[in-house]
Design a protein around this nucleic acid. Structure first.
Length: 603
RNA sequence: GCGCCCGUAGCUCAGCUGGAUAGAGCAUCGGCCUUCUAAGCCGAGGGUCCCAGGUUCGAGUCCUGGCGGGCGUGCCA
């Protein structure tokens, strides 16, 4: 039962968990129940000890004996297990383990040794995995949904990296098709309006302020180019369109030459803007994959041929359909319209085939839940071509609304109808925005609370975690100043001196970090990391506060006794590592000191 | 109509593969700064886990059927 080993290891305090798991399995076998499936984990309530197991409850039906009776029998056999101080039977038949102080504190030593790598695991074993996310069309600035997706995709990618996967971050964009045409026409209309002519934004076009900006920039660039003889090639291109001599469009419909250069210009400008927004949001991609490449490579045509060969396509009403219902889709889908052009479905299938052909057997697509209808048909198309049923994997997230005092607020200027990511980041900062996007389950609607986001106290979970980190750094700094302690001083500490309930609780909590990361990675659920960090920060703050001069100075970290101070500084260092690693993984800063607006920073 | 997601404290939400008395933050109430550490801490109150059945030693968690909300259901992307 290697799997049971791994499971219990996830939830236990590392090495000691393995020891106890083995002892439990042996004891269970003695009672006539080998290969038992059970759990060993840290109980929620610390009064239930350092570790707890449901093994007796799990074996009750198999052994046809009352769970408490089994628990008592097991407890007797487990007396004397190395590192275990006491075994108790509690509740309906749980086994609670109290560990030796050296074992509890020992986690601290492990953490200090692993440092910036603490929390990494090797589930992925170096296998490659692609995370595709954001994938915004270049028809406007990134909005809040993209922001959530950027934070989510990036954090999932990091979680996978920490779990031993080789991760490829990819951004797919539709730089062709009807929406891009509408964009070009919209910019063209603004160009004409700028030169005092009559023009209207087309049906389904784009009305945001940014369209006007692009029009202005386009006209500006044309003028600049005319003056520069070095741009002869582009110049000759642009003169293909009639009425270009003045550098402004003339009355009448746009020619294809006009629209082509406008389209290119608009797409380039918007993509540059998106990249800028993403860079400010600290999100990077390994690859940007354009839809047009699928056409120029002949992949779309090849996909049609390949699908034809499956015998699952048919002509109906002048369109070519694929029998996706065969693979669980709700209805068959059109792949080539009656006018001969492909639906988006076809390049989507072609695109996902490239993922497979590029060697990615594991792919996670992060998308807004408003696209969930595409999941079944894309998978069906891929299955028709022989790819496995669940390929690719999807994380679908719900939409984001910004609220203040319970009421929805909109501060959309750039894009007209929606709030942009850049506007939000300007308002609350990258750290806060990223964290808020991550702290809820993807499939839950996200109410982004502006009031809380702008709060710079510990009520704001971002600052709560960052402040706990900064606080630990200050203790280290003071230890150096006051006692001349260096990092080696803490590294050599005797962890069994960590005996107060809070010290034990913090140690146990820190020991759980790697298991949490593994679980969060497997579930593609960064919010679990947020929960973990908040809880850890809360415990760190409680521990720190317990030593407040007016409460119990004996519990403070920087006591005069060298051995005890060393042990506590080891805990400080370990907690700092865990918080810093968690923040780094989520793409947030781990500041050594916090400076609040309107604060000098000194206290 | 059908499909997917959601429904847990006044509010925003966690709740791991079915486990012990269902948790956190905010809000409310009560304590704690003559500073070794208040961007804080300690404590209290607050629950029909949407409803009804079922599965079993045990259900917020799994199954079935309802109710409520969101999204989708194009030869749009």
């Amino acid at each position: 039962m290697a799997r049971a080993d791994k499971r219990s290891g996830d939830r236990s305090a590392g090495a000691i968990g393995e020891v106890v798991t083995r002892a439990l399995r042996r004891a269970a076998a003695d009672l006539g129940a080998p290969g038992a499936d059970f759990r060993l984990e840290r109980p929620r309530d610390s009064s239930h000890g350092d570790l707890a197991s449901n093994i007796a409850l799990a074996l009750a039906s198999k052994l046809r004996r009352p769970p408490r009776e089994i628990a008592l029998a097991l407890a007797a056999k487990l007396e004397g297990t190395a590192g275990v101080r006491a075994v108790e039977v509690a509740g309906p038949g749980f086994l609670n383990f109290r560990l030796e102080a050296a074992v509890v504190g020992g986690a601290v030593r492990t953490i200090l040794r692993a440092g910036a790598d603490y929390g990494r695991s090797d589930e992925g074993a170096g296998r490659r995995i692609m995370v595709e996310f954001v994938s915004a069309n270049p028809t406007g600035p990134l909005h809040l949904g993209h922001g959530r997706q950027a934070a989510l995709g990036d954090a999932i990618a990091s979680l996978l990296e920490w779990s031993g996967w080789r991760v490829h971050r990819e951004f797919y964009f539709n730089d062709a098709g009807a929406q891009i045409d509408r964009l070009a026409e919209s910019v063209w209309a603004r160009c004409r309006q700028r030169s005092g002519r009559d023009a209207r934004i087309p049906e389904g076009g784009y009305h945001g302020e940014y369209v006007t900006d692009i029009a202005a920039a386009f006209l500006e660039e044309r003028r600049g180019r005319r003056a520069s003889p070095g741009e002869a090639r582009l110049e000759s291109e642009s003169t293909e369109a009639p009425g270009e001599e003045t550098g402004q469009a003339r009355a009448g419909d746009p020619t294809s030459g006009d629209l082509d250069s406008l389209r290119d210009f608009a797409v380039r400008t918007l993509r540059d803007g998106q990249k800028r927004d993403l860079a400010a949001f600290r999100v990077r991609f390994d690859e940007f994959y354009p839809e047009t490449r699928l056409y120029s490579d002949g992949r779309v045509a090849a996909t049609i041929r390949a699908l034809d060969e499956t015998g699952l396509t048919r002509m109906e009403g002048g369109a070519k359909w694929l029998e996706t219902t065969r693979y669980g889709d709700q209805k068959d889908r059109v792949m080539v319209k009656s006018d001969g052009s492909p639906t988006y479905f076809l390049p989507d299938v072609a695109y996902h085939m490239t993922k497979w052909e590029r060697g990615f057997r594991h792919v996670v697509n992060v998308q807004g839940a408003d696209h969930h209808s595409t999941v079944d048909r894309v998978r069906a198309g891929l299955q028709a071509l022989g790819r496995p049923a669940g390929y690719p994997e999807y994380v679908l997230h719900q939409m984001v609304t910004v609220v203040r005092g319970g009421a929805e607020v909109r501060f959309s200027k750039r894009a007209g109808s929606y709030t942009t990511l850049a506007e939000l980041v300007a308002e609350v900062g990258t750290d806060v925005a990223r964290y808020f996007f991550l702290m809820r389950r993807p499939e839950a609607h996200l109410a982004f609370d502006l009031e809380l986001a702008l709060d710079q106290s510990d009520r704001n979970p971002v600052y709560k975690v960052q402040y706990a980190h900064a606080r630990l750094c200050r203790i280290q700094l003071r230890a150096g100043r006051q006692f001349g302690d260096d990092p080696a001083f803490a590294a050599d500490a005797d962890p069994s001196l960590l005996r107060t309930p809070l010290e034990r609780e913090v140690s146990n909590q820190l020991a759980e970090f790697p298991g949490f990361l593994r679980r969060a990675a497997a579930a593609r659920a960064p919010h679990l990391v947020c929960d973990y960090l908040e809880r850890t920060a809360g415990l760190v703050n409680s521990w720190y506060q317990a030593g407040h001069p007016l409460r119990d100075p004996r519990q403070r970290a920087l006591v005069a006794d060298d051995d005890l101070r060393a042990a506590r500084l080891a805990l400080v260092g370990a907690a700092r590592i865990v918080l810093a690693n968690g923040l780094a993984l989520l793409g947030l800063d781990a500041p050594e000191r916090m400076v609040r607006d309107g604060d000098s920073g000194d206290r």
